[in-house]
Amino acid sequence: MFSQSFLTLLVQFWLFAVAMAQPISATVHDNAWKYGSGGGVVGFIILILDIIVFIEVLNSNRPVLHKVLWCLVVFLFPIGGMLIYWLFSNRKAHMSGGYEPIA
């Protein structure tokens, strides 16, 4: 399904993200939006964008397995998965044209 070079690139991106991650300190800060507890404002923006990706994937006309795989990629790699989805998912071809009638 995925080529060896793509998987290697994905692993290298994940290792880079882990290496650049900043640990959350155990000290208490006055402003929870700026420090600790999950990334502050930037983390909240990434969460909102990931939720938009989940909604778009679940509303698409993809097969169920592809929906699960895209959601899993975005769940495991929030920033990288979102970027990979927006760059490589062929979104226009899988957009549903509205509601489908129930048979």
Rank of each mutant, 00 (worst) to 15 (best):
M1T: 04
M1S: 03
S3R: 14
S3Y: 11
S3H: 09
S3E: 11
Q4A: 04
Q4S: 07
S5D: 13
S5Q: 15
S5C: 09
L7G: 03
T8Q: 15
L9Y: 12
Q12W: 11
F13D: 14
W14D: 06
W14P: 11
W14Q: 06
A17Q: 09
V18H: 13
V18A: 11
V18R: 10
A19F: 08
M20F: 09
M20L: 05
M20K: 06
M20D: 08
M20E: 15
A21K: 04
Q22I: 13
I24S: 05
I24Y: 11
S25M: 12
A26I: 08
T27G: 04
H29T: 02
A32W: 02
W33H: 09
G36H: 11
G36R: 06
G36E: 02
G40S: 01
V41G: 05
V42T: 15
G43N: 00
F44W: 05
I45T: 01
I45C: 11
I46Q: 07
I46M: 07
L47P: 01
I48E: 00
D50A: 00
D50W: 00
I52A: 11
V53M: 04
F54H: 00
I55P: 03
V57S: 01
L58F: 14
L58I: 03
L58W: 12
L58N: 14
S60G: 05
S60C: 07
P63N: 12
P63A: 14
L65H: 04
L65P: 08
H66P: 07
L69V: 01
L69C: 04
W70I: 00
C71Q: 04
L72S: 08
L72F: 01
V73C: 15
V73H: 07
V74C: 05
V74A: 02
L76M: 13
L76R: 10
F77I: 09
F77Y: 10
P78Q: 05
I79H: 10
I79K: 07
G80V: 06
G81R: 04
M82I: 08
I84L: 13
I84H: 13
Y85P: 01
W86Q: 04
W86M: 07
N90R: 14
R91N: 03
R91K: 10
R91W: 09
K92C: 07
A93D: 08
H94Y: 13
H94N: 06
G97Q: 15
G97N: 13
Y99T: 15
Y99M: 10
I102A: 01
